[in-house]
Design a protein around this nucleic acid. Sequence first.
DNA 1: CGATGTACCTTGCTTTACAAGGTACTAAGT
DNA 2: ACTTAGTACCTTGTAAAGCAAGGTACATCG
Lengths: 113, 113
Amino acid sequence: MDFFDNWTVQVRKGLLELCVLNLLLEGEQYGYDIIRKVLEVPGFGITEGTLYPLLSRLKMQGLVQTRLVESSSGPARKYYALTAKGRKTSATMNEHLQEILTGLNTLHGKDKR
Amino acid sequence: MDFFDNWTVQVRKGLLELCVLNLLLEGEQYGYDIIRKVLEVPGFGITEGTLYPLLSRLKMQGLVQTRLVESSSGPARKYYALTAKGRKTSATMNEHLQEILTGLNTLHGKDKR
DNA sequence: CGATGTACCTTGCTTTACAAGGTACTAAGT
DNA sequence: ACTTAGTACCTTGTAAAGCAAGGTACATCG
Protein backbone atom coordinates (compact mmCIF):
# COMPACT_ATOMS: atom_id res chain seq x y z
CA MET A 1 0.00 0.00 0.00
CA ASP A 2 1.63 3.25 -1.09
CA PHE A 3 1.54 6.63 0.61
CA PHE A 4 -1.47 8.01 -1.22
CA ASP A 5 -3.62 4.91 -0.71
CA ASN A 6 -2.83 4.92 2.97
CA TRP A 7 -3.62 8.61 3.18
CA THR A 8 -7.07 8.11 1.69
CA VAL A 9 -7.72 5.59 4.46
CA GLN A 10 -6.60 8.05 7.12
CA VAL A 11 -8.59 10.93 5.74
CA ARG A 12 -11.79 8.90 5.99
CA LYS A 13 -11.47 8.78 9.75
CA GLY A 14 -13.98 11.24 11.01
CA LEU A 15 -15.26 12.18 7.58
CA LEU A 16 -17.04 8.85 7.19
CA GLU A 17 -18.84 9.47 10.45
CA LEU A 18 -20.07 12.81 9.18
CA CYS A 19 -20.91 11.24 5.83
CA VAL A 20 -23.25 8.74 7.48
CA LEU A 21 -24.85 11.37 9.70
CA ASN A 22 -25.50 13.59 6.69
CA LEU A 23 -27.02 10.65 4.86
CA LEU A 24 -29.36 10.05 7.78
CA LEU A 25 -30.53 13.65 7.54
CA GLU A 26 -32.53 12.43 4.55
CA GLY A 27 -34.44 10.02 6.72
CA GLU A 28 -34.04 6.66 8.43
CA GLN A 29 -31.97 4.01 6.69
CA TYR A 30 -30.76 0.50 7.41
CA GLY A 31 -27.12 -0.51 7.39
CA TYR A 32 -26.90 -2.59 4.26
CA ASP A 33 -28.55 0.16 2.28
CA ILE A 34 -26.29 2.86 3.74
CA ILE A 35 -23.32 0.90 2.42
CA ARG A 36 -24.72 0.87 -1.10
CA LYS A 37 -25.47 4.59 -1.01
CA VAL A 38 -22.08 5.59 0.38
CA LEU A 39 -20.40 3.44 -2.26
CA GLU A 40 -22.08 5.59 -4.90
CA VAL A 41 -20.63 8.79 -3.44
CA PRO A 42 -17.47 9.63 -5.43
CA GLY A 43 -14.35 9.51 -3.32
CA PHE A 44 -15.97 7.55 -0.56
CA GLY A 45 -16.52 3.84 -0.14
CA ILE A 46 -17.22 1.78 2.93
CA THR A 47 -17.33 -1.86 3.96
CA GLU A 48 -19.38 -3.68 6.55
CA GLY A 49 -16.41 -3.93 8.88
CA THR A 50 -16.32 -0.14 8.95
CA LEU A 51 -20.00 0.74 8.99
CA TYR A 52 -21.41 -1.52 11.67
CA PRO A 53 -18.95 -0.50 14.39
CA LEU A 54 -19.49 3.11 13.30
CA LEU A 55 -23.25 2.82 13.71
CA SER A 56 -22.77 1.19 17.11
CA ARG A 57 -20.70 4.16 18.22
CA LEU A 58 -23.31 6.61 17.00
CA LYS A 59 -25.99 4.76 18.92
CA MET A 60 -23.88 4.47 22.05
CA GLN A 61 -23.41 8.25 21.93
CA GLY A 62 -27.13 8.81 21.57
CA LEU A 63 -26.89 10.38 18.12
CA VAL A 64 -29.10 7.77 16.48
CA GLN A 65 -31.83 5.40 17.52
CA THR A 66 -32.76 2.08 15.96
CA ARG A 67 -35.77 -0.04 15.25
CA LEU A 68 -35.98 -3.54 13.82
CA VAL A 69 -38.24 -4.14 10.83
CA GLU A 70 -39.08 -7.58 9.47
CA SER A 71 -38.37 -8.08 5.81
CA SER A 72 -40.11 -10.54 3.53
CA SER A 73 -37.07 -10.85 1.31
CA GLY A 74 -34.35 -11.69 3.84
CA PRO A 75 -33.33 -11.13 7.44
CA ALA A 76 -34.71 -8.29 9.56
CA ARG A 77 -33.39 -4.81 8.90
CA LYS A 78 -32.18 -2.47 11.60
CA TYR A 79 -33.22 1.07 10.72
CA TYR A 80 -31.18 3.99 12.03
CA ALA A 81 -32.69 7.44 12.55
CA LEU A 82 -31.10 10.63 13.87
CA THR A 83 -32.06 11.83 17.34
CA ALA A 84 -32.35 15.52 18.17
CA LYS A 85 -28.86 15.31 19.62
CA GLY A 86 -27.68 13.67 16.42
CA ARG A 87 -29.03 16.49 14.27
CA LYS A 88 -27.43 19.08 16.51
CA THR A 89 -24.10 17.29 16.56
CA SER A 90 -23.99 16.83 12.81
CA ALA A 91 -24.63 20.56 12.38
CA THR A 92 -21.74 21.35 14.72
CA MET A 93 -19.52 18.90 12.88
CA ASN A 94 -20.34 20.41 9.51
CA GLU A 95 -19.51 23.86 10.85
CA HIS A 96 -16.23 22.70 12.32
CA LEU A 97 -15.28 20.97 9.09
CA GLN A 98 -15.98 24.16 7.19
CA GLU A 99 -13.70 26.04 9.55
CA ILE A 100 -10.90 23.51 9.10
CA LEU A 101 -11.20 23.64 5.32
CA THR A 102 -11.10 27.40 5.34
CA GLY A 103 -7.94 27.19 7.40
CA LEU A 104 -6.46 24.69 4.97
CA ASN A 105 -7.16 27.05 2.10
CA THR A 106 -5.50 30.00 3.81
CA LEU A 107 -2.33 27.91 3.75
CA HIS A 108 -2.00 26.94 0.12
CA GLY A 109 -4.16 29.75 -1.14
CA LYS A 110 -1.89 32.62 -0.05
CA ASP A 111 -0.83 33.52 -3.56
CA LYS A 112 -1.97 30.59 -5.70
CA ARG A 113 -5.43 30.48 -7.32
CA MET B 1 -13.45 13.23 26.24
CA ASP B 2 -16.85 13.56 24.60
CA PHE B 3 -17.92 12.51 21.14
CA PHE B 4 -17.25 15.81 19.40
CA ASP B 5 -13.79 16.27 20.89
CA ASN B 6 -12.85 12.78 19.84
CA TRP B 7 -14.20 13.42 16.37
CA THR B 8 -12.03 16.48 15.93
CA VAL B 9 -9.03 14.28 16.72
CA GLN B 10 -10.08 11.69 14.16
CA VAL B 11 -10.79 14.21 11.45
CA ARG B 12 -7.25 15.56 11.73
CA LYS B 13 -5.84 12.23 10.59
CA GLY B 14 -4.78 12.76 7.05
CA LEU B 15 -5.80 16.41 6.98
CA LEU B 16 -2.86 17.38 9.16
CA GLU B 17 -0.52 15.69 6.73
CA LEU B 18 -1.98 17.74 3.88
CA CYS B 19 -1.88 20.84 6.05
CA VAL B 20 1.87 20.51 6.56
CA LEU B 21 2.51 19.75 2.90
CA ASN B 22 0.53 22.83 1.87
CA LEU B 23 2.48 24.91 4.34
CA LEU B 24 5.73 23.69 2.81
CA LEU B 25 4.52 24.85 -0.61
CA GLU B 26 5.41 28.33 0.65
CA GLY B 27 9.05 27.33 1.08
CA GLU B 28 11.28 25.39 3.45
CA GLN B 29 10.49 25.50 7.14
CA TYR B 30 11.83 23.93 10.31
CA GLY B 31 9.71 21.87 12.68
CA TYR B 32 9.38 24.19 15.62
CA ASP B 33 8.25 26.99 13.34
CA ILE B 34 5.74 24.77 11.52
CA ILE B 35 4.09 24.11 14.88
CA ARG B 36 3.67 27.82 15.57
CA LYS B 37 2.23 28.45 12.11
CA VAL B 38 -0.21 25.54 12.22
CA LEU B 39 -1.37 26.66 15.66
CA GLU B 40 -2.41 29.96 14.11
CA VAL B 41 -4.61 28.23 11.54
CA PRO B 42 -8.19 28.27 12.86
CA GLY B 43 -9.52 24.78 13.51
CA PHE B 44 -6.12 23.19 13.48
CA GLY B 45 -3.51 22.83 16.17
CA ILE B 46 -0.61 20.46 16.49
CA THR B 47 1.86 19.33 19.12
CA GLU B 48 5.44 18.13 18.86
CA GLY B 49 4.39 14.53 19.47
CA THR B 50 2.28 14.75 16.34
CA LEU B 51 4.49 16.79 14.04
CA TYR B 52 7.88 15.13 14.37
CA PRO B 53 6.65 11.61 13.58
CA LEU B 54 4.59 13.11 10.75
CA LEU B 55 7.66 14.79 9.25
CA SER B 56 9.62 11.55 9.59
CA ARG B 57 6.95 9.73 7.59
CA LEU B 58 7.00 12.39 4.88
CA LYS B 59 10.75 12.09 4.61
CA MET B 60 10.68 8.29 4.58
CA GLN B 61 8.21 8.48 1.71
CA GLY B 62 10.48 10.84 -0.20
CA LEU B 63 8.01 13.75 -0.15
CA VAL B 64 10.37 16.08 1.68
CA GLN B 65 14.11 16.49 2.13
CA THR B 66 15.95 17.99 5.09
CA ARG B 67 19.02 20.02 5.87
CA LEU B 68 20.47 21.02 9.20
CA VAL B 69 21.22 24.69 9.85
CA GLU B 70 23.13 25.97 12.87
CA SER B 71 21.38 28.61 14.92
CA SER B 72 23.06 31.22 17.09
CA SER B 73 20.09 31.39 19.42
CA GLY B 74 19.58 27.73 20.31
CA PRO B 75 20.01 24.22 18.96
CA ALA B 76 20.37 23.48 15.24
CA ARG B 77 17.24 23.63 13.12
CA LYS B 78 16.19 20.92 10.69
CA TYR B 79 14.66 22.54 7.63
CA TYR B 80 12.13 20.59 5.57
CA ALA B 81 11.55 21.28 1.87
CA LEU B 82 9.21 19.59 -0.60
CA THR B 83 10.68 17.32 -3.25
CA ALA B 84 9.23 17.13 -6.75
CA LYS B 85 7.39 14.01 -5.64
CA GLY B 86 6.09 15.90 -2.62
CA ARG B 87 4.66 18.69 -4.75
CA LYS B 88 3.02 16.19 -7.07
CA THR B 89 1.58 14.17 -4.22
CA SER B 90 0.18 17.20 -2.42
CA ALA B 91 -1.54 18.27 -5.63
CA THR B 92 -3.12 14.82 -5.96
CA MET B 93 -4.18 14.92 -2.32
CA ASN B 94 -5.80 18.33 -2.69
CA GLU B 95 -7.72 17.08 -5.71
CA HIS B 96 -8.88 13.97 -3.91
CA LEU B 97 -9.98 15.99 -0.91
CA GLN B 98 -11.97 18.26 -3.18
CA GLU B 99 -13.69 15.21 -4.66
CA ILE B 100 -14.54 13.85 -1.22
CA LEU B 101 -15.97 17.17 -0.08
CA THR B 102 -18.08 17.45 -3.20
CA GLY B 103 -19.41 13.97 -2.46
CA LEU B 104 -20.14 14.98 1.11
CA ASN B 105 -22.11 17.98 -0.11
CA THR B 106 -24.22 15.90 -2.49
CA LEU B 107 -25.40 14.03 0.59
CA HIS B 108 -26.63 16.78 2.84
CA GLY B 109 -27.14 19.27 0.05
CA LYS B 110 -29.88 17.38 -1.79
CA ASP B 111 -32.62 19.79 -0.80
CA LYS B 112 -31.11 21.88 1.97
CA ARG B 113 -29.13 25.08 1.29
C1' DC C 1 -30.14 -29.14 -1.33
C1' DG C 2 -26.51 -26.23 -2.87
C1' DA C 3 -25.73 -21.47 -4.49
C1' DT C 4 -26.71 -16.66 -4.42
C1' DG C 5 -28.29 -12.44 -2.42
C1' DT C 6 -29.59 -10.06 1.69
C1' DA C 7 -28.47 -8.45 6.29
C1' DC C 8 -26.27 -8.32 10.54
C1' DC C 9 -21.92 -8.63 13.54
C1' DT C 10 -16.92 -9.62 15.29
C1' DT C 11 -11.76 -10.28 15.35
C1' DG C 12 -7.06 -8.95 14.30
C1' DC C 13 -4.08 -5.71 12.09
C1' DT C 14 -2.25 -1.23 10.94
C1' DT C 15 -2.00 3.59 11.25
C1' DT C 16 -2.48 7.85 13.40
C1' DA C 17 -3.00 11.91 17.04
C1' DC C 18 -1.79 13.11 21.47
C1' DA C 19 -0.05 13.49 26.27
C1' DA C 20 3.90 12.95 28.57
C1' DG C 21 8.51 12.62 29.02
C1' DG C 22 13.48 13.12 27.57
C1' DT C 23 17.83 15.56 25.60
C1' DA C 24 20.53 19.64 24.63
C1' DC C 25 21.76 24.38 23.53
C1' DT C 26 21.43 29.63 24.65
C1' DA C 27 20.50 33.61 27.43
C1' DA C 28 18.91 36.13 31.34
C1' DG C 29 18.12 36.38 36.28
C1' DT C 30 19.75 35.97 41.19
C1' DA D 1 27.71 29.08 39.80
C1' DC D 2 22.82 27.89 39.69
C1' DT D 3 18.39 28.14 38.19
C1' DT D 4 14.87 29.30 35.05
C1' DA D 5 12.96 30.00 30.58
C1' DG D 6 12.94 29.68 25.67
C1' DT D 7 14.33 27.14 21.65
C1' DA D 8 14.55 22.81 19.14
C1' DC D 9 14.64 18.11 18.43
C1' DC D 10 12.91 13.21 19.42
C1' DT D 11 10.55 8.90 21.70
C1' DT D 12 7.17 6.02 24.29
C1' DG D 13 2.64 4.46 25.46
C1' DT D 14 -2.34 4.80 24.82
C1' DA D 15 -6.71 5.20 22.45
C1' DA D 16 -9.35 5.35 18.28
C1' DA D 17 -10.65 4.29 13.53
C1' DG D 18 -10.72 1.86 8.82
C1' DC D 19 -10.44 -2.51 6.68
C1' DA D 20 -9.86 -7.38 5.28
C1' DA D 21 -11.50 -11.46 6.59
C1' DG D 22 -14.47 -14.34 8.68
C1' DG D 23 -18.94 -15.80 10.91
C1' DT D 24 -24.24 -16.26 11.41
C1' DA D 25 -28.80 -16.49 9.55
C1' DC D 26 -32.85 -15.85 6.45
C1' DA D 27 -34.97 -16.18 1.66
C1' DT D 28 -35.20 -17.54 -3.08
C1' DC D 29 -33.96 -19.85 -7.31
C1' DG D 30 -32.16 -23.67 -9.79
